[in-house]
Design a binder for these strands. Structure first.
Lengths: 229, 229
DNA sequence: CGCGAGCTTGACGTTGTTCAACTAGAGTGG
DNA sequence: CCACTCTAGTTGAACAACGTCAAGCTCGCG
């Protein structure tokens, strides 16, 4: 079960949102009072598709996957520490359109939706940054939907590998930190096909694989595969 | 070529955005001064994927399609009069992630990005409504991506027909106002398959078709097809 | 040592795209 | 007014892409 606590000081918190300092002391205080800190273990569900959002979820530490559930899951994106997970559900229709689960041990700050909305309405620069964040988070989805609906297996898997390398781990060598099944769910394909194409890439010396440790050897080819789809 | 003019009065405009009255006179004035009205004919491109947004586009009259270009297009949604077309490109990263084209004769108000952002920063209720609009527009895309990535042809075409009937034309009988190719681009399939499945639906008396005039005869079956994917 | 979860590979059937041929209707120029 | 052409729509058949099923493998853990 998740471990629950209260923040000691939001102002001094090393994990705080970069725009928190746009708020005055009183407003930070009201965040701090309404905030609950929850620790999730790897695999635990943080929010569930179909339920209503009652809190804004700020990801202070760790990493989560945001995915759509169904007969087969589709992972839309991974989120790293320092971002709100779900602002558009707080400011728009309040039903979650997706589920979120921890990819590693994770620390989440839950702030009551009404508290956050209330003080956004009191501080326009803060609201402006929130609006920017929501906009950019939406923009990412456009790329995803176009990639998934048009590219074939190799292109989609290349996309996933580039995504992990550039956006998530920011290195050519990384531990994917997930199962083959999850990698397939990022690329919207069956687990077997993900494995098959990984083997192809390995045989063609495009990537090196050792268990969950991946190394991108020929990024130009991956890029090309992503390009031609 | 598009026909260009200036607004006479934004306050008295019958097509104005429903939240325009949150602004004070001075701010409405600055919108009116910076606004250019453009009339597009059916088929004309309103904005082009890959270019940078310099203006907010408000759709006063008509209907447009918002689509991602590539070897094959994917129509993400149709937008009816009374909405901004692209707020997330104004408030987030300013490169258009999609193209927009007129589905019928259309009237668009172009308002300089900086003007709109500037007065959003002066009027918090206005910004709040903008934030809500951006959030909900993003939420729609989540449904789309999950439908497209997981359902098969029949389910996706059923989705498109239900979408046209419920969201766009709000009737069981409607003129689709687009080619079979565009209908296929909504459902992310080849034009030939769209035609084939339409014929199936027609033979099974699920829908009636006469040229571009469609009539939904057995909505429950369409719903079921959408459900089982 | 045995068990189970995750991984790997091959074979096969299904789904969807592409190519090709044909039809109907709308617009054009003689 | 009639050929001509062009585009949208329609249908069939071949082929490629992808998912599913099944079998076996490996590694960590009790």
């Amino acid at each position: 079960m998740p471990k629950i606590s209260k923040p000691v000081s939001c102002v001094k918190c090393p994990y705080k949102w970069e725009y928190l300092n746009l708020l005055n002391d009183e407003d930070v205080n009201s965040i701090q009072n309404s905030c609950t800190i929850i620790h999730f273990k790897k695999g635990e569900t943080i929010c569930k598709q179909g339920t209503d959002a009652t809190h804004a979820l700020y990801l202070a530490k760790g990493m989560v996957k945001l995915y759509i559930e169904g007969k087969k899951n589709l992972i839309l994106k991974l989120i790293k520490a320092g971002e709100y997970i779900d602002l558009q559900t707080v400011f728009g229709e309040k039903t979650y359109k997706y589920s979120v689960a921890a990819m590693e041990d994770t620390m989440v700050c839950m702030i009551g939706s009404n508290i956050l909305k209330g003080l956004a309405l009191n501080n326009i620069e803060y609201l402006f940054e929130i609006t920017k964040a929501i906009s950019n988070s939406g923009n990412y989805i456009f790329k995803k939907i176009s990639d998934i609906s048009r590219k074939q297996l190799r292109g989609r898997l290349a996309d996933a590998l580039i995504y992990l390398s550039e956006e998530i781990y920011e290195s050519d060598s990384f531990d994917i930190g997930m199962t083959r099944k999850e990698l397939a769910e990022i690329s919207s394909m069956s687990m077997e096909n993900a494995v098959r194409i990984l083997s192809e890439f390995k045989n063609d010396k495009i990537i090196g694989i050792n268990g969950k440790k991946f190394k991108i050897l020929q990024k130009d080819i991956l890029m090309k595969l992503s390009d031609i789809g």
